[in-house]
Design a protein around this nucleic acid. Structure first.
Lengths: 242, 242
DNA sequence: TCAAGTTGTCTAGTATCATAGACAACTTGA
DNA sequence: TCAAGTTGTCTATGATACTAGACAACTTGA
């Protein structure tokens, strides 16, 4: 079988890698387990052993497995649970998992509100906004890239403040916002674009969870609206219903 | 640039197709809009025009765009919003969108509880279960494939009942369950496996939203636990926080 | 009517994906 | 010590993805 046969645009070795990764994600292969031998995997997927080796090579590079010559290939890593609550704070979630939360400013610039952004923020189309592009990590693992928009009128200089505090919570506090909560959240999945893939240290073609959300103050007035892209292979959202 | 250069295992034409599809999903190109010409797209992505044509061909086949000779290529379709509430009923959500909800039994069989399934359902590991594999559609568009597990002791013959009623709500009602609601929901994204891709009419390598959920009765006792895979390109989840 | 811009189709050449087979290097357990 | 099983590396070959250039067929607006 060749790539053309499937007409999927996804190389065979990549399909094998995805299959094994799925097995790791859903617990078929747990951390520390030994994978089947390369010849056996080749039989399972009905591909050549070289194709399997290419798949395992990329999984090893991404830290999912570790090959030991003469012995076998072993599973390395797990996933981070990410609750979606009304009070969602990245630092608290990651900290609870025993990891060190880190934020990093990628870029801050001025922008004008599109119709959609204006509606979310309760402004007029064309209103001045500040756009903040940020990367969030747990220890040294990139978790998500997010683009946030705030009204320039209410949060002047927000970019610099975020750069200094590296935290949206602290940024809002700086402007006198003592508490805030999540409004509605929209979730879908997509393939990471080149820029996000690079920042999240993802291979091209990997899925991201795309989350559009708006944070509001205690009176329900919108503060900031965001589009975040999470590395799906490292994250699992948990929705707790009341 | 070739596929090998990027070492992503994703063909160039596929990356272009994903890029254009992303543009359609996020509103850069709205329904009815004319896409840039093939030569222009080729310049944007720095690929050959033939590569762009291949990308557009697959988008056309999937119904996202329509090419008109001599004139241009035009955008066709949108996305279905899928609310995640405590009372989630597929039929109501789809029906509200003006589309006809349909269910289809793929397979029903007996199974034994793994440790995880047993915990979700409040049973002992190894308990007898009934596994129902089902496909859900809106009009004729496949939306999700789901695997449901129920305790065989409480819901004997559940497979046959689902086959007849084609509805989980009606199945539960048949066993005397008058109302039920969502327990916790876990969401992540992955690449569709071959079987799911076929059933959802997705190209290989396309992302799916994977939702693990358990429905409980009004007393909070677990009834059924499910793993559903939604075609990410057709769905957007909406989380409404209280 | 005509020019510019569009999609559709053809012919080639090159890079590389995938297969195939062989053997080396190493680990493990009998 | 040895046999079986594992990963690592090499050579070779066919299929095809991608590039390149040319021209046909058609639409649109001046």
């Amino acid at each position: 079988m060749t790539m053309q046969d499937s007409a999927s645009g996804v190389a065979l070795w990549r399909q094998v890698a995805d299959g094994i990764e799925r097995g790791i994600a859903n617990g078929t292969y747990a951390a520390g387990d030994k994978l089947p031998g390369e010849t056996e995997i080749a039989e399972i997927y009905r591909v050549n052993r070289h194709t399997v080796r290419r798949a395992l090579a990329t999984l090893a590079e991404r830290g999912f497995v570790r090959a030991e010559r003469g012995s076998g290939t072993y599973v390395e890593a797990p996933r981070l649970a990410y609750p979606l609550r009304s009070r969602t704070r990245f630092s608290e979630i990651v900290g609870a998992g025993g990891q060190e939360p880190r934020g990093q400013l990628i870029d801050a610039s001025e922008d004008v509100a599109t119709k959609e952004l204006a509606r979310e923020l309760g402004l007029k189309t064309g209103a001045a906004l500040i756009r903040i592009e940020a990367l969030r990590l747990a220890d040294r693992t990139p978790i998500c890239v997010s683009t946030s928009w705030l009204a320039a009128a209410r949060f002047p200089d927000a970019g610099r403040v975020f750069g200094a505090t590296r935290s949206m919570t602290k940024l809002l506090a700086h402007y006198g916002v003592r508490d805030y909560r999540r409004g509605t959240t929209r979730i879908t999945a997509a393939i990471a674009d080149a820029a996000d893939a690079a920042r999240l240290d993802l291979a091209l073609g990997r899925p991201v969870l795309v989350v559009d959300s708006t944070d509001v103050d205690i009176d329900g007035k919108p503060l900031v609206t965001k589009r975040s892209r999470f590395a799906a292979e490292r994250i699992e959202f948990v929705v707790e219903n009341g």
